[in-house]
């Protein structure tokens, strides 16, 4: 009985919050979704589906109140999976390659990527990393001298892995994609990028 009442109250709260804050959401969703061709492959259309974090971040324009923020960060933290061998530092040379690759994953009729095209982390789109790459973006902070500044302790390594796997575990609604959660990068590929960030021999730290 008590449980039922609680559930009902919660449901009511959710509905009213939705109605109060966002009465455009329902028609806007309908307009957004009906803008796509009806003969699109089903797989393509999965890309417009939203998980809870996406829905909340959209609703609050990426600036959720503290309670929502905490909730997102907790659930996202719980999603992180590690490589089977438990090693979080891979090969920085592989990581260097992945950091530069911005292609892959484009779909559609006009200009899709060929199947099997390498997907990378596209890190340079937003971050400065190795000094020799001058074509870096500034949406994210500079990561040059990543471990030179932070050290190579287990906590630093784990943070780097977790942040790439699921950025929202630390900063709900950040601009950074959740590379591991979406299987955009495999856990092994993430360890290579971690190595690129933390290995003292990597150009991120050496140059």
């Amino acid at each position: 009985m008590k449980t039922h009442l609680l559930a009902a109250t919660l449901a009511l709260a959710t509905v009213s919050a939705h109605a109060a804050g966002n009465d455009i959401a329902t028609p806007a969703e309908q307009i957004f979704r009906s803008g796509f061709r009806s003969d699109n492959p089903k797989y393509w259309m999965t890309r417009v589906e939203q998980d809870e974090a996406m829905r909340l971040c959209s609703q609050y324009k990426d600036n959720p109140p503290a309670k929502v923020r905490q909730k997102i960060e907790l659930t996202q933290k719980a999603s992180i999976r590690y490589p089977v061998d438990g090693k979080l530092i891979g090969d920085w040379k592989e990581g260097e390659k992945l950091a530069a690759v911005g292609t892959g994953g484009h779909i559609g009729f006009i200009q899709p990527d060929p199947p099997g095209r390498l997907r990378g982390g596209n890190c340079y789109a937003c971050h400065q990393l190795a000094a020799k790459e001058v074509a870096y973006g500034t949406i994210g902070p500079s990561l040059r001298h990543f471990s030179k500044l932070r050290g190579t302790g287990d906590d630093v390594v784990q943070y780097a892995y977790d942040k790439i796997y699921n950025s929202n575990a630390f900063n709900a609604c950040t601009n950074m994609p959740r590379f591991g959660l979406h299987n955009w990068l495999t856990p092994e590929q993430i360890t290579h990028i971690v190595a690129f960030l933390v290995d003292p021999e990597s150009p991120v730290n050496k140059d």
Binding site: A28, F32, R47, V48, E49, Q50, M54, C57, S58, K61, D62, G102, G105, Y124, A125, C126, V134, A135, Y136, G137, T138, I139, N175, M176, P177, R178, H182, N183, W184
Partner: peptide
């Protein structure tokens, strides 16, 4: 502001801040 897809993108993540660049 609607985020979705395998990179969590929305228009706002690239076009919601002042003075940023993607690559150059």
């Amino acid at each position: 502001y609607r985020r979705s897809g395998p990179q969590d993108f929305s228009c706002a993540i690239c076009h919601g801040q002042e003075g940023k660049r993607i690559r150059l």
